[in-house]
Design a protein around this nucleic acid. Structure first.
Length: 414
RNA sequence: GCGCCUGUCGUCAAGUGGUUAAGACCUCGGAUUGUGGUUCCGAUAUGCAUGGGUUCGAAUCCCAUCAGGCGCCCCA
């Protein structure tokens, strides 16, 4: 026997039995996002590496150590680790800034990150997400969050926690970073290695360190005071407070989490996450926020934008398993040709139909029918002669002969 | 990149040093030559991730390698 080959580490087959859940996610995405005016967009799964370096940010882990990058024809290309950069690239390249705002786009598809796999984390995984361009007002932030909550509700996920925070604009954030670094400077040597690293790279991410010794440091009064201070400028504060007003009025429950810091560099002002307690340590199903400078950084006009992405595998692990549907009919017959022809006729009429291709014994055919179909269409010599079909309801055992002309309309009455 | 745990049939598993490696589900065949889902019978691992070692003897102990899971980090 030849050697068996396995899926690549961190990737998974999505098997037929999983498909009903995937179809539900995809159908609800199309239905609900459409109601909010979103149009679907599909961008390539690989892009020029520079797009992610400039878009996602070269201080992020995603760009630093998690990208699948390869060289082809002297160009460096990368399997997309997320889709916002690609959508923004397409928005700019296709002149969508000429469209009347808001420009609302949604996507779904595979993403690739080279990380150690664990519960809720794969190297190839799928995201569904939205991006809205052209609106600086907090109505955009509020509608994006409302849409996320609506979509989750449609999947039966009603009690997930929405966390929000405001990172401020680049100006107030820089000032805040500076203050954090100043107040922590005397403690620098006592921080854990990760935090020492973060101190330079992204001081904001120091805040939710889980190491006990670091937590203790952050509890010191003079440090805690800085962490908990409202650092954002007046304009940012107003934006944030309007967002909260909208959410309150719309009945969207949320908790404010001052420590919530998305790891991507492009966010400003609003950031949010939606979390579940049933996911293990990778507990975020949705993450997003506002990214007003990304379009400009990638060469477009100054364009405010908001977006989020959800991990589809994580969503699926939260929704109940959906049993596959049985087909309408299985044709039971010892005449292969007649069965074949009848199957084709019925399929053209819109039914899902199978028949026995191996000319097995009658009882075997019926046994198969009972496993996979709602009805058995029995086609024996008598039936063929009289142009009839004996329809058997396999859950009630009721059987009735029906004229083939009326089969399509009458079989479900058996 | 670091830590912990695990690897017995397609799947779930019993077995923890001593003759032929339980059982269940699935699959396939038969009992049943035009009536299934119930029942009964039968088939299906010369092998326990792979390679070494210890032993009279190893799925069981040891080492290495590989694979998987979980956690840290990070994120969806």
């Amino acid at each position: 026997m030849a050697k068996i080959l396995n899926v690549v580490k961190g990737t998974k087959d999505i098997l037929p039995q999983d498909m009903p859940m995937w179809h539900l996610l995809e159908k609800n995405a199309l239905d609900i996002f459409s109601k909010y005016g979103y149009k679907e967009i599909r961008t390539p799964i690989f892009e020029v590496t520079e797009l992610f370096a400039r878009g996602v940010g070269d201080t992020t882990d995603i760009v630093n150590k998690e990208m699948y990058t390869f060289e082809k024809s002297d160009r460096s290309l990368t399997l997309r680790p997320e889709n916002t950069a690609g959508v923004v690239r397409s928005y700019i390249e296709n002149g969508m800034s000429r469209l009347s705002p808001p420009v609302k786009l949604w996507y779904k598809g595979p993403m690739f990150r080279y990380e150690r796999p664990q519960a809720g984390r794969q190297r190839q995984f799928h995201q569904v997400g939205i991006e809205m361009f052209g609106i600086k007002e907090p109505t955009a932030d509020a509608e994006a969050i409302l849409l996320a909550v609506d979509y989750l509700k449609s999947l039966g996920l009603n009690d997930l926690e929405v966390e929000i925070n405001s990172l401020g604009c680049p100006e107030c954030r820089e000032a805040y970073k500076k203050r954090i670094k100043e107040v922590l400077k005397p403690e620098f040597d006592n921080l854990c290695d990760d935090c020492k690293n973060r101190y330079e790279k992204n001081p904001l991410r120091l805040l939710d360190c889980k190491v006990e010794s670091c937590k203790a440091i952050f509890e010191k009064p003079e440090i805690k005071a800085v962490i908990q201070s409202d650092f954002i400028c007046e304009e940012c504060a107003e934006h944030y407070s309007k967002l909260k007003t909208y959410l309150n009025e719309l009945g969207v429950k949320y908790i404010e989490n001052k420590l919530l810091v998305r790891g991507l560099d492009y966010y400003n002002r609003t950031v949010f996450e939606i979390k579940s307690n049933n996911l293990g340590s990778q507990n975020a199903v949705c993450g997003g926020g506002r990214y007003d400078s990304l379009v400009r950084n990638l060469g477009g006009d100054d364009t405010p934008a908001v977006g989020w992405a959800m991990g589809m595998e994580r969503l699926i692990s939260l929704i109940p398993t959906i049993e596959p549907q049985k087909i309408d009919a299985y044709i039971v017959s010892n005449s292969t040709i007649e069965a074949f022809k009848l199957a084709e006729t019925l399929r053209n009429e819109g039914l899902t139909v199978e028949f026995d291709m191996q000319n097995k014994k009658f009882t075997k055919q019926l046994e198969k029918a009972s496993k996979i179909a709602q009805y058995a269409f029995i086609l024996g010599e008598d039936e063929i002669k009289n142009n009839m079909v004996s329809v058997k309801n396999l859950s009630t055992s009721v059987q009735k002969a029906i004229d083939r002309k009326n089969l399509r309309s009458e079989f479900k009455n058996v």
